[in-house]
Nucleic acid binder design. Structure first.
Length: 620
RNA sequence: GGAGCUGUGGUGUAGCGGUUAACAUGCCGGCCUGUCACGCCGGAGAUCGCGGGUUCAAUUCCCGUCAGCUCCGCCA
C-alpha cells in the first residue's frame, strides 16, 4: 500500500462514488443533479440549482467571484454588477461559510480564464438568483485541506473541521470499508447481530466503564470491552456465523491508536477450522485493498509461531517490511572470555545479537545512547562490535579470539560498516530488548507493500510478577492446544493456546482464538487463573451453564476497524478517522464530556460524590 | 502512575530579563470587470494558558497548575 498523501489516493475517480445504485429493497430516488465539484465542460449551457457553503469570495469591484463548496467539491460562481443590481448587492454581502442557494447557468470559460488546478476549472456558474440560507461567524480556522492548526481547536469545532474535504473523504472511506466488509461477510454466510451495550462487569481484562442502575441502586452495568461472551452465546444459540461492527469500551490510558470507545469488526463461527477462518479474513483484507486502493494483496499471508516471532524479531507483532532478524549467538559466545556472556549462559540465559547494517559509523556517544536505551528497557547492558575493513572495533573484542570474532561475524552476516549489538541474559528479555532496538534502528524508508502475517500458538498464560499469579495471554475463554492439555496444571506457562494475531507492518490489527466449548476445560482454566469456584459461578454461571447444553466448537476474531481505516488513509492517529474523537485524557472537547450531573440525577441512582475527590485529597 | 514536548492578536509563527511585543494570514472599511491563496490603500485586534516565586523590572528565569500531543506503565 503506497503511503502517499490521502488526497492523492482517495481522489481517484470512482473510488468514492457519491451515489450508489439503490440496492434491493432501497428506494431509487432517481438521478440527483450533480454537485458543485462534479460539474464539467459537458454541463455547459445547463440551468441548475446549487447549494453549499461560501469557500472564498474574490471581489473585483464590478465583478465578484465566489467559490461554492459542497461535499463534492468547489465550483466558481460569477456575479456581474452590470446585471441585476439587487443580486449583486446581496452577493457583496457574502462571507466565508455562509450557506447559500443559487440558480444559474453553467458557462464554459474562455481558454485564458480556465483554472487547471480545479476539476471544475473549465466552467463557472453565471448566477441568476441567490438566497442566503444562513450566515456564519468567521470560522476560527480555515476550511481547507493541509491545515496546520492546534488539535485542541479542531476538536472543539469538530463540525467545522469535518467540513474540510479531506475529512469528508476520511468518513467516506470508512463508510466504504464498512460496506465492503458487511457485504463480504454477508456473502460468506455471516449474520450481523447486535449485542447489548449495557452488560455486566467481568473480572480480568481492561477497566470497565460503569453505568449505575436506577432500578437497582448500588448495582452497575458495564459497557462491553468486547462482545466476547455474547458472541459465544450466539454460537451456543446455533447462529454458526456471526459478525458485528461493534463499539467497545475500555477505561484505560489512551494513545494515538487507542480511544476509550473504538470499533471492532467482531466475528465468530462454529464448526470452522482455523485455516478456513484465516482464508475468509485474508479474502476480506484482499477485498478491502482492491476495493479501496486497487491493490492486489498476495495470499495466503505468512504465518509465524509466537515463539519464532519472539526469537527472530523480539516482538509478537513483527514489522516484516525489513530484515534485521535477531541472531542467537549463544554458541560462539560460550567460547569467549567475556564474563558477561559466560555468566549469562551459565545461568541458563542466552546471548543474542542484532545486526544494524551500515551503522558502524556511529560515534562513541551515539553508541552510549543505544546502551542507555537498552538499559532503560531492562537490559543489564548492551555490547557492541563494529565490523571494519580490517578486523573489529569494540571494547569487548579483546575477549574474543580472532577466529571466534570471524565466526560471530559470519553467523550474523556482518559486512564492513555494520554494527552488531549484543544482549545477554534471560532469553526473553534479550529478545524483547533487541526487538525494540530493531525498531529503533529500522531503516528510514520502508517498502510500500503491506506485509501481513498471522502469529499463531500464543502461550495460554502469562505470569504477572506483581500480583504473583497467572493471567490469560488472550482472554480466559481461549482454548488450549489439545496436545498441551496434560501440562495445564503441572506446567501452565508451557501451555500453548489456540490464539492468534493478525499483524500488518508491525501493527496488531486483530486477534482471535478458538474458544473453550467444554465446561470441564473452562473450569480448569478458571482454577489456574485463581478464579474461585464461587466467583466463577457468580460471574460466569451463564456461560458455564451454556457450555453444558451442547455448545459447538467455535472460535473467532476481532479486528480494530479504526486502526484498519487509519492504515488506509495513512493517518498516524485513529482520531483522524473517528467522527467525534476524544482527547488523550478521554474528554470530548466539543460536548465537554465527561461532565458533572445534577444532584437530582445522583440521588435517583443512589450515588453520592466524595467531594474531596475533586480536590485530590482524602474524604473527610 | 511516570517522562518529554507545546501553550504569544481569530489563526499560524517570531521574539526577548527593560521592545511601542514583530511577521504572515484572517477580520473590518475603501478602491478595483477575469480573479481563482486576486491585487492595492487604510484600520481594528494580545492582561504573552493560569497561579506563585526570584528580580529594581518577568511574556522571557524558577516552582506549581491546567489543557493538548507523544511515549513508558496500563490496554484479558
Amino acid at each position: 500500500m503506497p503511503r502517499a498523501g490521502l488526497a492523492e489516493r482517495l481522489q481517484r475517480e470512482g473510488l468514492l462514488p457519491r451515489r450508489q445504485e439503490a440496492t434491493a429493497g432501497g428506494t431509487a430516488e432517481g438521478a440527483e443533479p450533480p454537485g458543485c465539484g462534479e460539474l464539467r465542460a459537458g454541463d455547459a449551457g445547463k440551468e441548475l440549482a446549487l447549494r453549499g457553503w461560501v469557500q472564498r469570495r474574490r471581489d473585483h469591484g464590478g465583478l465578484l467571484f465566489v467559490d461554492l463548496r459542497d461535499r463534492t467539491g468547489l465550483v466558481q460562481l460569477v456575479f456581474n454588477s452590470e446585471g441585476d443590481r439587487e443580486l449583486f448587492a446581496l452577493a457583496e454581502s457574502l462571507r466565508s461559510e455562509y450557506v447559500i442557494a443559487v440558480r444559474g447557468k453553467v458557462l464554459r470559460r474562455d481558454p485564458d480564464q480556465r483554472n487547471p488546478a480545479l476539476k471544475t476549472g473549465e466552467i463557472e456558474i453565471q448566477v441568476a438568483h441567490l438566497e442566503i440560507l444562513n450566515r456564519s461567524k468567521t470560522p476560527p480556522f480555515y476550511i481547507e485541506d493541509g491545515l496546520h492548526v492546534d488539535e485542541n481547536l479542531r476538536l472543539r469545532y469538530r463540525y467545522l473541521d469535518l467540513r474540510r474535504p479531506e475529512n469528508y473523504r476520511r468518513l467516506a472511506l470508512r463508510h466504504r470499508a464498512v460496506k465492503l466488509i458487511r457485504d463480504y461477510l454477508d456473502g460468506c454466510g455471516f449474520l450481523e447481530i447486535e449485542t447489548p451495550a449495557l452488560t455486566r462487569s467481568t473480572p480480568e481484562g481492561a477497566r470497565d466503564y460503569l453505568v449505575p442502575s436506577r432500578s437497582s441502586p448500588g448495582s452497575f452495568y458495564a459497557l462491553p470491552q468486547s462482545p466476547q461472551l455474547f458472541k459465544q452465546l450466539l454460537m451456543v444459540g446455533g447462529v454458526e456465523r456471526y459478525f458485528q461492527i461493534a463499539r467497545c469500551f475500555r477505561d484505560e490510558d489512551l494513545r494515538a491508536d487507542r480511544q476509550p470507545e473504538f470499533t471492532q469488526i467482531d466475528i465468530e463461527a462454529s464448526f470452522m477450522e482455523r485455516e478456513r477462518l484465516f482464508a475468509i479474513m485474508e479474502g476480506m483484507m484482499a477485498l478491502l485493498y482492491s476495493g479501496l486502493l486497487g491493490y492486489e494483496l498476495p495470499r495466503p499471508f505468512l504465518r509465524l509461531t509466537y515463539r519464532e516471532a519472539m526469537e527472530r524479531y523480539g516482538t509478537d507483532k513483527p514489522d516484516l517490511r525489513f530484515g534485521m532478524e535477531l541472531i542467537d549467538c549463544s554458541e560462539p559466545a560460550r567460547e569467549s572470555e567475556f564474563k558477561v556472556f559466560r555468566s549469562a549462559l551459565e545461568a541458563g540465559g542466552a546471548v543474542k545479537a542484532l545486526r544494524a547494517p551500515g551503522k558502524g559509523g556511529y560515534s562513541r556517544r551515539e553508541l552510549d545512547e543505544l546502551v542507555a536505551l537498552a538499559v532503560g528497557w531492562g537490559a543489564g547492558g548492551l555490547a557492541w562490535l563494529i565490523r571494519e575493513e580490517q578486523g573489529w572495533r569494540s571494547p569487548i573484542a579483546k575477549f574474543f579470539s580472532p577466529a571466534l570474532l570471524e565466526k560471530i561475524g559470519e553467523l550474523a552476516g556482518a559486512v564492513p560498516g555494520d554494527l552488531l549489538l549484543f544482549a545477554a541474559g534471560d532469553r526473553s528479555l534479550c529478545n524483547e530488548v533487541l526487538g525494540r532496538m530493531r525498531l529503533h534502528l529500522a531503516p528510514e524508508s520502508l517498502p510500500a507493500e503491506p506485509h501481513f502475517l498471522w502469529v499463531v500458538d500464543f502461550p495460554l498464560f502469562e505470569y504477572d510478577p506483581l500480583e504473583k499469579r497467572l493471567t490469560p495471554a488472550h482472554h480466559p475463554f481461549t482454548a488450549p492446544r489439545e496436545e498441551d492439555l496434560p501440562l495445564l496444571e503441572s506446567e501452565p506457562l508451557a501451555v500453548r493456546s489456540q490464539a492468534y494475531d493478525l499483524v500488518l507492518n508491525g501493527v496488531e490489527l486483530g486477534s482471535g482464538s478458538n474458544r473453550i466449548h467444554r465446561r470441564e476445560i473452562q473450569w480448569r482454566i478458571f482454577r489456574e487463573l485463581g478464579i474461585s469456584e464461587d466467583e466463577a459461578m457468580e460471574k460466569f454461571s451463564f456461560l458455564l451453564e451454556a457450555l453444558e447444553y451442547g455448545a459447538p466448537p467455535h472460535g473467532g476474531i476481532a479486528l480494530g476497524l479504526d486502526r484498519l481505516v487509519a492504515l488506509f488513509t495513512g493517518d498516524e492517529s485513529i482520531r483522524q478517522v473517528i467522527a467525534f474523537p476524544k482527547t488523550a485524557a478521554g474528554s470530548c472537547l466539543l460536548t465537554g464530556a465527561p461532565a458533572e450531573v445534577a444532584p437530582q440525577q445522583l440521588q435517583e441512582l443512589g450515588l453520592s460524590i466524595k467531594s474531596a475527590l475533586k480536590d485530590g485529597g482524602p474524604d473527610r
